[in-house]
Amino acid sequence: MTESRGNAPMPAWLLPGLGLLVILLFFLSLGVGTMPLPLTGTLAALFRGESSLETLLLLELRLPRALLGLLVGASLGLAGAAMQGFLRNPLAEPGVIGVSSCAAFGAVLAFYSGISLTFPLALPLGGIGGAFLSVLLLHLLAGREASTLSIILAGVAINAFSAALTSLVLNFAPNPYAALEIIFWIMGSLADRSMEHVQLVAPIMLLGWLLLLASGRGLDALTLGEDTAASLGIDLGYLRLKLILGTALAVGAAVAVSGAIGFVGLVVPHLLRPLVGQQPARLLPASALGGAALLLAADLLVRLLPTGPELKLGVVTALVGAPIFLLLLHRLRREMAE
C-alpha cells in the first residue's frame, strides 16, 4: 500500500464548490415555503423599489429564515471542526459535549425571566454565557491530553447538569403553555424568525468565526501534541482562549436564536475531513461552508415534507446525526478500550 485512503491533498474545487452549493441552497430557501413565490419576479420587483405582498413575504419571512440557516449552519459546522481540532477527537461536537444544551439553558433563562423582553441582547448573551461555561468546564473536566472516554464522560455530565437546570426552569413554569413553549423552542427551528434576530446575532457570530478561523495554525500544530505545538511557537494559552471564546460566541449566538440543533458540527467535519487531507486548519473554512449547506438543505427538507405540523429542524438533524455518531463511536471503540 503506497497510498492511504482519505489523506490526499485538498482538491482546488472544494471551497468554491461548497460556496456555490451554499449560494444555490440559499436561493432555493428563499423560493420554497407554504406560499408559492415567483423568486426572480419578486427579486426584480424588489430591486425596482416596488412593494407588494410578495416582496414583504420575501423580506420579512423568507430572507431571515435563509440568512439564519446560513449563519447558524456555518457557526455549528465551524465550531464542530474547531472543537475537534482543539480536543483532538472527532467526536467533540457542541451538541454531544453539552455546549449546545448549556447555551440553550442560558437562553431559556434569559427569556423565561423576561429580561430579554426589555433587553433583547440578553438572549444571545445568555446563550454565550452558557456555552462559555460549558467549554471551560469541559476543558477542566477532560484535561489536556483528553481521551475519547474522558471527553464523552465530561459531555454526559455537562449535558445532564444543563438538562437538570432546564427542567428546573420548566418545573417552575406558571402554566403548561409556557413550559410547552420552552420545550418547542429547545427542539430547534428557524421558522418565524425576523430580521431583528439576524441583526442581533450576526455580528456576534462573525466575531466568533474570526477567532475560530484564526486558530487554524495552532490546531495544525496540535496534531503532534501540546509540547510539539509549543515548540513550533504556538502560544497555547492564547490559542485556548481564542477557541473557547470563539466557540462560545458562535454556538451561544446560534443556539440563542435557533434552539438546540445538534450533530451538524459532528456530521459535517466527519464528511469533509478526508477531502481536506485530514488537516485541521483546512477543515475550518470547509466545515463552515458545509455546515451552512447542510442546515439550509435540512431546513428546506422540513418545509417540503408533507407532515402535519412542520418538523422541528433540531429533530431532523438529530435523527440523521445520532446514527452517524454511533457509527463513529463504533469505529473508535478500540481506542476507547485502551
Binding site: S4, G6, N7, A8, P9, R88, N89, R217, D220, A221, L222, T223, L224, G225, D227, T228, S231, L232, G233, I234, R273, G277, Q278, Q279, P280
Partner: peptide
C-alpha cells in the same frame, strides 16, 4: 523539539506531517 513517544492525532500524510515543521 522532538517529543517522546510521538503520535499524530489525525491521519495526515507523512509529507504534510513533516511540513508542520515549517509552521
Amino acid at each position: 523539539y522532538l517529543a517522546q513517544g510521538g503520535e499524530a492525532h489525525w491521519p495526515l500524510r507523512v509529507e504534510r506531517l513533516v511540513a508542520l515543521g515549517r509552521l
